[in-house]
Nucleic acid binder design. Structure first.
Lengths: 108, 108
DNA sequence: TACCACTATACGGTATCACCGAGTAGCGGT
DNA sequence: ACCGCTACTCGGTGATACCGTATAGTGGTA
């Protein structure tokens, strides 16, 4: 699959929220998770910019912990605002994707 | 539904391609069509920038025709390159949307 | 000891995209 | 003469994902 960059704009952040929401985790692992989910081109740098943005916007709670196999990890978990944002993301996704699918199917 | 801007990035152009592909039409009408399809916030300016981009990228064929109810209209139709691009867009959409839906459903 | 691979994060700069606002213009009705 | 609807153009903005580079900890190997 060729470049998905443009199509992921506006959705990748939601995907990261969902991953964090299902389990407290850190940037490097989130990148691996996205890759195995099929978002093969997503690299660390991209995920870290999203995580820093989530932190800046007060949607996550952060805890630094030692790793044992490398530098310390920054673990992320959703707070109340983050869970609310995630809910809104899925509502929006449902809305947009259903309209696009309708357009695809001859669009009435 | 609040602002869909970010989520439409990378997909709105494809939607416009699909609309043009199903019928030769012009900017103002495309905007109305998008609005009635549920993309309520999309305005003329946005659609025109997409159309100019499609033209610049050689994906459409353009014909100016008088209107009777206003200024002349620029009618757009897909050429071969446009049809190919539209095909690629739907493949990509299918790929991305299915992965996101999978993530939503507990994501294995 | 030196090097490399893997793990892990940060950050400045770039390209793309949808949007906004102001401008231009044709037509019909009051 | 004015307003509303139709119709297109264009310069500038903000948000987002990406890229490249730098920094740094751990373990393996020559």
């Amino acid at each position: 699959m060729d470049d998905l960059t443009e199509m992921l704009k506006g959705t990748l952040e939601g995907c990261v929220l969902e991953i964090i929401g299902s389990e407290e985790t850190y940037g490097y692992a989130i990148t691996r998770r996205l890759n195995e989910l099929g978002f093969a081109g997503v690299v660390e740098g991209t995920v870290y910019t999203i995580l820093l943005r989530l932190e800046r916007n007060g949607l996550v709670q952060v805890a630094k912990r030692p790793s044992g196999v490398g530098p310390p990890r920054k673990f992320y978990a959703l707070n109340d605002a983050g869970r609310e944002e995630l809910g809104k993301f899925w509502v929006k996704w449902q809305y947009v994707s259903s309209r696009i699918d309708r357009l695809k199917e001859g669009g009435r």
